[in-house]
Structures are given as structure tokens and as C-alpha cells.
């Protein structure tokens, strides 16, 4: 059995199963893994394999049907959503300031906005602070989502395919931003992706999920920054692809 007290583990899944009501098959079954503090782990797998469910379980948005999860309390977990999930009636800075004020009720609106500006600067969006989400590009919206997620200084940052709807150039920029912020903050990051290349570009560890269970786990030793044309990168992608389509 895996244990959070072992080494540096921050998240531990022990024999997790998840079945949704009114569904005959289980979304997840017999999932066990651990994630060390400060690592960047990527879950990959085909659509409907249960990757996003794993993130929801970590975030406390879903409860497992069976098994146990050891993770930081929900207030120390933050998430960037595929759709951005920004509140359309709030400006970029107010989207970030809102979560700051919710997490710390003593914070005045002025101070929360000032702090929010600092987090927007982290993702190079300070000039767009007063724009509404509808006036931002897809990449800018995801940057606000990242700023909002980081603003609560989480122990764990979850990313649910946040780059899947973006063009390759914006995706590459956001990958660089994410890696920079990861190094800067030391936050433990767990991301979901359906792209093997994206996972290899970002992750220190990759977990392949197929049909609701863990099919394989990989630890990557390729130094950052990783470039797609490098031999080690290509070999790693080929290696994972074999298992992915097996």
C-alpha cells in the first residue's frame, strides 16, 4: 500500500475506483499512484479514459466509490480548466481578485486587486487587467486562469487540458510560461493531456491511463527546455506511443 508519509509524497491514490450513478461501467478502477512534492506529472490517455476524473478526485470535486486518497485539503488545491472557466462578468483582474478575497475575507478589494495585478504580471497580462474575458484571446484567457489558480498559492496545481483549444504558437508560449512558473514557485503540478508530445515537453513524470486504469508510468530525465526535434524527445514519444496504441 502506498503512503503519504513515505518519502516526499504529496498525493497518494490507493485502489481508487469510481462509478457514476446510472452508468454500468466504472470510470476508474484500481488506480494506485503517488505524486512527489514539486514534480510535474502528466496524465495522458485516450478520450474517456478517466484522466479528468483523476483530477476531479484530487480537487475534491468528486468522491471515489472505493479506495482512499491522501491529498492536501481542497483550499490548498487550485485548478486551470479546459474552458478557462472565467466569470464573464468580471474583468481579468477581478477574476483573480475574487478568489483572493474568498480565500482571505479580511483582504480589502483594493489590496486584492493589487495582488491580482501582480499575478497577472507573472503571466505577462498586466496590460489586459481591465479587459473582460470576452475581449481576450483563448491564450490570454488561459493565462488569466493560470494567474487565478496561482493567486491562491496552492500546494497542488491541476491543469485539465488547458491548452487543447489553442493554436500551436500560443500553446508553445504557454508551455514555456508554465515551466517558468513551475520552476519559480515549486508548486506540484498535475496536468491532463491527450497529446503525448505535450506531456513529454512538460512532465517530469507521465502516467498513461487506459480504460479507467493505469496502463504505464514513465519517469523522464530529459533536461529542460525540451525541443521536439531532439533525439531523446523523439525516442520518448515513440516509446510512449507504442504503449498508448497497444
Amino acid at each position: 500500500m502506498l503512503n503519504a508519509s513515505d518519502s516526499n509524497n504529496l498525493i497518494v491514490f490507493n485502489g481508487i475506483g469510481k462509478t457514476y450513478p446510472h452508468e454500468h461501467t466504472s470510470a476508474l478502477h484500481d488506480i494506485s499512484f503517488s505524486v512527489e512534492k514539486g514534480t510535474l506529472t502528466c496524465f495522458i490517455g485516450p478520450s474517456g479514459s478517466g484522466k479528468s476524473t483523476v483530477l476531479k478526485l484530487i480537487a475534491g470535486l468528486e468522491k471515489p466509490t472505493i479506495g482512499s486518497i491522501q491529498a492536501p485539503p481542497p483550499k490548498n488545491i487550485s485548478m486551470v480548466f479546459q474552458s478557462g472557466a472565467l466569470f464573464p462578468w468580471l474583468t481579468a483582474v477581478d477574476n483573480v481578485a475574487l478568489v483572493l478575497q474568498v480565500r482571505d475575507a479580511r483582504l480589502s478589494k483594493t489590496i486584492a486587486r493589487k495582488k491580482a495585478q501582480e499575478f497577472l504580471a507573472l503571466v505577462r497580462l498586466q496590460e489586459y487587467a481591465e479587459k473582460y474575458p470576452a475581449d481576450l484571446s483563448g491564450g490570454q484567457r488561459q493565462r488569466v486562469g493560470i494567474a487565478r489558480a496561482l493567486a491562491v498559492t496552492p500546494d497542488v496545481l491541476l491543469l485539465d487540458e488547458p491548452f487543447s483549444a489553442l493554436d500551436p504558437k500560443t500553446t508553445a508560449e504557454l508551455h514555456d510560461d508554465l515551466l517558468r512558473l513551475w520552476k519559480q514557485t515549486g508548486t506540484t503540478i498535475l496536468a491532463v493531456s491527450h497529446l503525448i508530445e505535450e506531456a513529454v515537453a512538460l512532465a517530469s513524470s507521465i502516467i498513461l491511463i487506459k480504460e479507467g486504469t493505469i496502463a504505464q508510468r514513465y519517469t523522464l530525465h530529459i533536461p529542460y527546455p525540451r525541443r521536439e526535434q531532439e533525439t531523446a524527445f523523439i525516442q520518448e514519444v515513440h516509446h510512449i506511443r507504442r504503449d498508448f496504441f497497444a
Binding site: 475534491g60 470535486l61 487550485s78 466569470f87 475574487l98 474568498v102
Partner: peptide, 25 residues
């Protein structure tokens, strides 16, 4: 959207705060 509700709850918006800050707008 389900993501909006999930984000609101994840960031601690529940009860009255959820009503005023998310549901009503």
C-alpha cells in the same frame, strides 16, 4: 457551464457567496 460551477466551488464559493458572486450574475 459545469466548469464554472466546479471552479467556483474549488475556489471556495459556496452558499451565499456562491449565490451573490456566481448564481445571481
Amino acid at each position: 457551464p459545469r466548469d464554472i460551477i466546479a471552479a467556483a466551488h474549488l475556489f471556495g464559493l459556496w452558499g451565499w457567496t456562491y449565490f451573490w458572486k456566481v448564481l445571481l450574475p
